[in-house]
Simulated scan of single mutants.
Amino acid sequence: MTEPSITSGEIRKALTGYRALAWMTGIWLIALCYEMVMKYVYHVEGLNWIAVVHGWVYFVYLLFTANLAVKVRWPIAKTVGVLLAGTIPLVGIIVEQVQTKEIKERYGL
């Protein structure tokens, strides 16, 4: 049985979703760092909602990244690395830039 081929349009759509979620995750992770500084250094309460939003955005990032990984057939180790990049401030955005360039070159997007 042959595998169904993935079209460049499907890859482009998955890449766009991944890119958007990588940036949103990065921005909300910076906001989470701000929330933690405000809470533990300045003892400001009431910003706990930032952690909740970040958690949900990161969850959706995981889904979009896994979707892209399946479509472009990333190895498991690379997939896990890209997933974990979203847990370190700014690293997820940098990894997104590198992966986007690689995918665009590889698939002629």
Rank of each mutant, 00 (worst) to 15 (best):
M1R: 10
M1P: 11
T7K: 05
S8P: 09
G9Q: 12
G9D: 14
E10D: 11
E10V: 04
R12G: 09
R12I: 03
A14G: 03
T16Y: 10
G17W: 00
R19E: 10
L21F: 15
L21W: 14
I27L: 13
W28A: 07
W28K: 01
L29P: 00
L32N: 06
Y34M: 12
Y40Q: 06
Y42N: 13
H43V: 04
V44D: 09
E45R: 11
N48T: 10
N48Y: 07
N48D: 13
W49I: 11
W49Q: 06
V53M: 13
V53R: 05
H54N: 10
H54A: 09
G55T: 11
V57I: 15
V57Q: 06
F59I: 13
F59G: 15
V60Y: 15
T65V: 03
L68D: 01
A69R: 00
K71T: 03
V72H: 00
R73M: 06
A77E: 10
K78G: 00
V80C: 02
V82S: 02
A85E: 02
G86W: 00
I88M: 13
P89E: 12
L90N: 05
V91M: 10
G92D: 06
I93R: 03
E96M: 07
E96Y: 01
Q97T: 13
Q97Y: 11
Q99Y: 13
T100M: 04
T100H: 09
L109Q: 08
